[in-house]
Every structure is written in C-alpha cells, then in structure tokens.
C-alpha cells in the first residue's frame, strides 16, 4: 500500500488520461443520446480516505442514483455512474420517448430500466475506449442500479481497497449537459492490483 502513496506525477497523469479517454467517449455517447452538447471536466485522480470519497457528490447521506458494474478481465475494478436525483429525472425528460415522468422520488419500472440502459451504454463506452487504449481485455458485468445514500452505494466499490488500507485510489470525472441541467459523475476504482497492469500496458513504470 505504501507504494500508492508515492504515485509519481507522471503516473497520475497517465491515470488522468485513462479518465479522459474513458469519460470522453462516455460523454460523446451521452451527447448523442440527448442530442445536446455535454461538457466534461478534467478527471481527478486521488488517493482518498473512504470517508471523503462521497464528498464530491454531496456526502455520505446524500441520496443518489448509482449504476454500478464490475469490470472484469485483465485489470479488474469497480465502476460507478452517479447521478443526482434531479439530474436523473431531467435526463429521462430529455430522452425521446419518455415524456411521462413520474413525480419526484418515484421511478417507474420503465424509467429505471431506461436509466440502467443509459448507465450501461455510458459505462460500456468508457470501458471499450479504455480497453482500446490499453490493449487490455476488459469487460463489464451487467449493470445494477440503486437509489440510496452515497456512502452505502460507494462503499461497495471499496471492498478490494478495504483489504489493503483505509484509502482508495480512484479516477473521478464529472460531466455536465450543455446548460448544466444534468450532472453526472464517473468513478472508476481499479482493484489495487490493476494499477500495475494499467501502467505496464501503457508502457510506463509500475508502482
């Protein structure tokens, strides 16, 4: 674990590029879905104590919509696509074919299914571009959706890091739909052992 604390500048840059490429493709996919421009922020690559990971999405008790999938293959990890509840509603409203959007806090089967599929498409484009970029074999599991406290959902992606320490290294990318109605966050949390594989695949020294 000590090695993680000494990530060098260029290694951080490599991981930022991983986030850039992955989330960039996902943002393009979202933009196509919505037929609207989607802006993406510079990815943040940080080693964070478990407690602080949910801070950027409103804290541990903030209720969010989370789509989770496990990345399998040569560099396994966990991926979350997180939307604020208002954003999820607006995303549905903006999508053709779902005019009837139920009241706040309520989601119909159809809406949940649509959101799950959006998560699937976005995470899929994130991962496939990452796989192309690294030439690593990566495949997503079927996504699963939960609407719950940020702390409760994110902790599920920290179990692999939990065996190593009380911090996790994650790649976070935030993106906003053109007029900032929809805000989404991508969290890629590669398993601790996967970082070396990513670095090696990209031709830089590992940890």
């Amino acid at each position: 674990m000590g090695a993680f604390k000494e990530l060098r500048e260029f290694q951080l840059d490599v991981l930022k590029e991983v986030g850039n490429i992955g989330a960039g493709h996902a943002a393009t996919a979202l933009s196509t879905l919505l037929n609207k421009p989607v802006d993406m922020q510079v990815p943040k690559v940080r080693m964070l104590p478990f407690e602080e990971i949910s801070a950027s999405i409103g804290g541990e008790e903030q209720v969010v919509l989370a789509i989770f999938l496990r990345v399998e293959g040569e560099a396994p990890g966990n991926m979350f696509f997180i939307l604020a509840l208002e954003s999820a509603k607006k995303l549905l409203k903006n999508l053709v074919g779902l005019q009837q959007v139920s009241e706040e806090g309520e989601y119909t089967e159809l809406e949940l299914s649509a959101l799950n599929e959006i998560g699937n498409i976005l995470a899929g484009s994130y991962l496939s571009s990452l796989a192309d970029f690294t030439k690593l074999h990566l495949s997503p599991t079927v996504p699963s959706l939960a609407i719950d406290m940020a702390g409760a959902v994110l902790s599920f992606g920290l179990l692999q890091f939990g065996q190593m320490g009380d911090q996790a290294l994650l790649i976070e990318t935030k993106f906003l739909e053109g007029n900032h109605e929809v805000e989404g966050h991508f969290f890629l949390i590669p398993d601790p052992e996967s970082f070396d594989k990513i670095f090696t695949a990209l031709g830089v020294d590992g940890l």
């Binding site: 949910s54 008790e61 719950d148 406290m149 702390g151 409760a152 994110l154 902790s155 599920f156 179990l159």
Partner: peptide
C-alpha cells in the same frame, strides 16, 4: 449518541 452513516454492505 453514537452515529454512523451510509451503511451498505457494512
């Protein structure tokens, strides 16, 4: 009052 937040699988 002891309090802990956001228990998922924990």
């Amino acid at each position: 009052v002891l309090k802990t937040t956001g228990l998922g699988s924990c």
